[in-house]
């Protein structure tokens, strides 16, 4: 009885229209959502004054390598479209302005004040849209640390080590230690992929995923290893060296003492 009712409804001329409408809504809505996630990039809410100040700072500090219009030269890449997040990370961690060329640009004391960094970010993001500086709500460390740990081990730990202690890459490059890095900079690094780090855009790791990862890193930073001294958390090399030198050395010492005659 009931079945027949449904069958009748299915044959109604409105049914086809309804199905098509529902399909369009789901597909279109989903696509809009997905593209919005990838192009998570706004020019931010910077003032024109900030842009002007940023341009001045850029011309006097950055243009020699990145070009007068940030179009890039042989000494530095184009900054068009890299976004405010990239500027905030590179200048905010002291990697930029670069000190010397080498396998990797090193972290060093920050050269600008935060408002100057903001002005530079304002200028660069005014050139073309790119990833913006993350919203404060994704930088809190109250995310799901278990989930963050799982995502970190899958996406980050191969280079940065399971506890974020960092590790070596090819030809003198390395993945830096993540201890003591500001939540904002960790987020920006994931979004922009500085130097040889790959990009983890919001379609791959959503802002919530990133928040969970940051929460995990901050959690292990605040909670030292339950197993005692970590020896830097660097794994078998450091721990093996300790065993070979000190533990085996101690055993050899005891053996010598056992066999020696008393004075």
């Amino acid at each position: 009885m009931n079945k027949r009712k449904i069958n009748n409804a299915r044959r109604s001329p409105f049914a086809a229209i309804l199905v098509i409408a529902a399909g369009l809504l789901v597909a279109g809505g989903g696509y809009a959502g997905a593209t919005a996630a990838v192009a998570h990039s706004t020019s931010g809410s910077y003032t024109q004054e900030q842009v002007d100040l940023g341009k001045k700072l850029f011309l006097s500090n950055c243009a020699s390598c990145h070009g007068k219009n940030a179009e890039g030269t042989n000494y530095g890449p184009s900054l068009i479209g890299v976004g405010a997040a990239s500027v905030d990370f590179q200048v905010g961690t002291g990697r930029m302005p670069g000190q010397a060329s080498g396998p990797q640009l090193m972290k060093k004391p920050v050269q600008f004040k935060q408002d100057q960094i903001d002005a530079l970010a304002a200028y660069v993001s005014s050139l073309a849209p790119g990833p913006s500086v993350p919203d404060e709500k994704y930088l809190a460390t109250n995310g799901n640390t278990t989930r963050g740990g799982e995502l970190f081990r899958i996406n980050c730990a191969m280079c940065h080590n399971a506890v974020g202690a960092g590790g070596a890459l090819t030809e003198g490059k390395f993945a830096p230690n993540l201890k003591g890095v500001e939540a904002k900079h960790i987020y920006e690094a994931m979004v922009t992929g500085p130097q040889n780090m790959p990009v983890f855009n919001d379609a791959n790791l959503t802002p919530t995923d990133k928040k969970d990862i940051i929460s995990y890193l901050k959690y292990i930073e605040a909670n030292p290893s339950a197993g005692g001294e970590e020896l830097g958390g660097l794994g078998p090399v450091a721990e093996g060296l300790f065993l070979w030198l000190f533990v085996l050395g101690g055993i050899v010492g005891i053996t010598i003492w056992l066999g020696a005659k008393s004075n």
Binding site: T35, I154, N155, G193, V199, N201, N204
Partner: peptide, 21 residues
């Protein structure tokens, strides 16, 4: 699909320089 949650990946999600596991 993405490791570990098994969600499918659109070609448009994979921007240049991106890495997916």
């Amino acid at each position: 699909t993405r490791d570990p949650y098994g969600t499918p990946i659109k070609a448009s999600d994979v921007t240049i320089g991106s890495v997916f596991h």
